[in-house]
Design a protein around this nucleic acid. Structure first.
Lengths: 222, 222
DNA sequence: GCCAAAACTGAATGTTCGTCAAGTTTGGAA
DNA sequence: TTCCAAACTTGACGAACATTCAGTTTTGGC
């Protein structure tokens, strides 16, 4: 077990088992964390559900927090793929920063998300990183096309993620009515520098329905 | 000790002592939490610094979290008062939602804030509640004056707080350069529905310097 | 002074995260 | 096939911490 696999393109058995364990851990952690919250999920319970010893978890994740981050990244990645599969069917530049509306609806309606919103800076950061490539590209394209007025797409996306997660939290805790969703989208679009009227108009644009979750997307890379 | 004080307007000795203890606890917690972070601050250390037994803390705050919230409210309240003292000297309606720029600078430069940004949903909520009255009033006034285009000031302020705290965190963690401050303010102003150009112009408006902290403001009410 | 209610105390409790020494598996080399 | 060392796994354990609670002290009206 000292040499790397002869053929680098073929995944060695070790690597395969490692990946299987890692995925099992993330899946277990996701189930428990979405059920009881990140805090209440204990490492022991996660390890048991994934069928590994308590100590083994730490061979895969340095800390509980790192595991939570991996879970959030997985969720974001899957949602990003589902959105991407639909929105890339039409090509008007402002694709609304990968369909903010869908993200908002998912975050507020999917019970699995509710428990995670209390780590809002972590989930916002995961959203920034996992969906950022799509969103930032769209912001840039739309700006080049003169539809948005954004000079620093990175920054606008960062602000958007935090505002959106904050709004989701406010809705799930009842501080904002669910009916505020429309206005939330409008205000996020306002950050692109188009005025209020243009934002209202853009938000009203119909969007294709998302496919049901179906077969889960492959686990996040990395 | 069974009767309430004869004269309700005069604060009884008990109430006074209670308040003193409460303030001492908040002050102790603030010192330690800003120094080491909310997580790393232990209830025992806080109790010792406030010169009370470990159990006494729970006569004043139901949990560590509630104590942390009280600390954040205090910080926000003090900052709000300092800003209010300056900005109410000029009366053009858009006062820039109580000087977002000052909040951002304080959050990113004051070392005492850095440790607290990791509870971003909590600090954003404290900001929403403690500075909300000023901010929301300004948003309404400016909208009535036709300077902003905001129909739901509450919502815009909620989004702003989350975005601003998220941006502060990104700066203190080095994910955004401190030089992005100007653009952050511009984008927050964009949420008021004025276009990008108007936002740039408004952000460039000079603002009066804040008085140094001097004698600390009186503790937050409640 | 007296006393009951309120407040305080700090040791004890019950949990949890993360570590570690000991044991097991793996896959190439002899 | 047998051997071996590296890599991985295990689960008991230590340390730390939030919170509780039985016992003690303080309070303030009488």
């Amino acid at each position: 077990m000292t040499k790397p696999p002869a053929n680098p393109t073929e995944e060695g058995r070790v690597a395969r088992r490692r990946r299987r364990n890692r995925d099992a851990l993330i899946a277990a952690a996701r189930d428990i964390m979405t059920d009881k919250g990140v805090e209440a999920a204990t490492m022991l319970e996660i390890a048991e559900r994934a069928d590994v010893g308590a100590g083994t978890v730490y061979n895969y994740f340095k800390s509980k927090d790192e595991l939570a981050i991996a879970v959030l990244e997985t969720l974001m990645h899957e949602l990003g793929l589902r959105i991407e599969a639909v929105t890339n069917t039409f090509d008007d530049p402002p694709r609304s920063m990968p369909d903010l509306r869908t993200v908002l609806d998912t975050a507020t309606n999917d019970v699995r998300w509710a428990q995670l919103l209390n780590r809002s800076e972590v989930i916002a950061d995961a959203m920034f990183r996992m969906m950022g490539p799509f969103a930032i590209r769209d912001l840039r394209l739309a700006s080049q096309a003169g539809r948005f007025h954004v000079s620093n797409a990175d920054l606008v996306w960062r602000l958007s993620t935090h505002a959106l997660i904050g709004a989701s939290l406010a809705i799930t805790t009842g501080q904002l009515p669910a009916s505020a969703s429309d206005q939330i989208i409008v205000r996020l679009l306002c950050m692109t520098g188009i005025g209020a009227n243009a934002a209202v108009e853009l938000a009203a644009r119909p969007r294709p329905a998302l496919k049901p979750e179906g077969n889960p997307a492959p686990p996040a890379p990395r």
